[in-house]
Structure formats: C-alpha cells, structure tokens
Amino acid sequence: MKLNLNALQSLTHSDRQADRVVPPSGFTARLTLFAAAAMAFLAVFALALSMATGRLASQWSAELARTATIRIVAPLDQRATQTEAALAVLQTTAGVQSARALSDEEQSALLAPWFGPEVSLDGLPVPRLIEIVETADGIDAAGLRLRLAAEVPGAVLDDHSRWRAPLVKAASRLRLLGWVATVLIVATVAAMVTLAAQAALAANAQVIAVLRLVGATDRYIAQAFIRRFTLRALAGSALGVVLGVIAVVLMPSGGSEMSGFLTGLRFQGLGWIVPFLIPPLTALVAFAATGAAARRTLENLS
C-alpha cells in the first residue's frame, strides 16, 4: 500500500456514496472498535511502565556514581593518626582515583542542618570523613574493609547505595519489556484489523465482484473498506487512550523516592504526548493492514 497523501486525504473527505456501496456491518464494527480501544488502553500502561522504570533506572544509576566514604570513628586524640593511616591504605588500594579527608569546615557545613551553624565541632568526637573517588573499575569493597579492619580499627567503609545495582538492571529490563509490550500491542492491532478486514472482504465477496464488473477500480473498492477500518481503529484507540490516561492520572502519586516505583507510574513532561501518538499510529497500522488484505483479496478476482 502506497501511503501517499492522496490515499490518506481520501479518508478524510468522506464520499458518502462510496461508503454506501459496502453494506454496513454493525457487529464486526463494534468488535473492531472494542479491540482497538482495549489495545490502546493496554498500550498506555505499557508506555507508562516503560517511561517510569526508565526514569527510575537513570536516577538510580546516577546515584551509583562511583564514590564511597570512610568514617573514622575514634577518640579525638587518635582521629588524626587513624585518618593518616586510612589515607595511606587508600593510596595503595587498587581502584581508588583520589581520596581526601574533609576539613573541619566542610564537616561543620554538612552537620549544620542538625546542630545549627553556631555549634563548634572542636572537642566533639565527630567522625572524620574521607571522600573516595573511584576509578571506572571501582574498588573491592570487601578487601578494603579487611585491610582497614587490620590497620585502622576505627574506619568504617560506606560504599553508598551499591546494593541498588541489581535493581537498576531490573528497572532497565522492565523498561525494555514495556517497549516490547507496546510493540506487541501494535502488532496485535495489525493482526486483529487484518482478520476483521479479511472477514469483511470475504463476507462481501459478491459486492466486490459486482463492483469489479461495473468498472470499479481496485483502489475504489479497497478504499471503501480501508476507510471503515481506519476510522474504526482510530475512534476505538482514541477512546482507549483517553480512558487509559485518565486511569494513569488517577493513580495515587507522591511518596518518597523509594516508593517511586509504584507511585511514579505516570508520564512526565513531554512524556504526556506519547500516549496520544497511539491513535494515529493505530490508524496508520489499520490503514496498512486493511490495504494489504484488500489487495490480496482483489488480486484473486478477475
């Protein structure tokens, strides 16, 4: 099927006379409408899932940026020596790009939200923080912990949210599955419209034969069917998308970042446009599927 402008244009300015040459088919029409609506509804959720998990995955992996912290928890008089020792250990640890102890001012700034800016940390046994920037290969956290335990008893290694790594993987996979589901839904719409169109073409074999005999071109005959199924698919999927989007909007939202997986199942920003691309896409798929079915049927007629 040539997806040329002419063919698409003829869909819009409806030739009522031409529409009448094919008898109306109430039941299959409603089935097509329903199936297109149901598929569009599902597609909205598949898309929302992909986009939400996609956001989650990139957010989490950004947080996984390769940093770690060592806390030196020691009596004040040993803190400086233990910090030196820890830095020495880090210098000979594979995977460490740089390591530096935070200054008192930096630590006060970090703690200010809790203690207020006036509180002086002098004389308080606040742990010293060492900030580690890792190389691309990362550090062997378990090995480093063993060495620190032997040489710097007050050191505690915090490798941040490394535990989330498998979750990031799962989220990426979920996003992929969401897209796969969307593609499958589109393919199902194509299959369904093809079946419905084929059934309509078969049911109207006599009509088609008469039209051929009185000089109708294949294009004219095909268009009577194409127009119907395209408009039905378009209407059905528009309905499904509207209902789907309403359902997504009504999903409870908010909550912390951790509960974001469930409550974040919605679109964001330009993402809201995406579900509204489903109806035109469905119409296009129906247009092509009906065209192909009609062409196959007509080529077997004299």
Binding site: V21, V210, G215, T217
Partner: peptide, 16 residues
C-alpha cells in the same frame, strides 16, 4: 448490491 435500492444499483457504474 442487495442492500441498495434498484435506482442506485442502476446508477452504480456512474457512482464507481
């Protein structure tokens, strides 16, 4: 075309 009146059937070649 059994669903269309006789007059429209006769005019069908013009229509198509």
């Amino acid at each position: 075309l059994d669903h269309l009146p006789v007059a429209e059937n006769i005019a069908l070649p013009l229509t198509v």
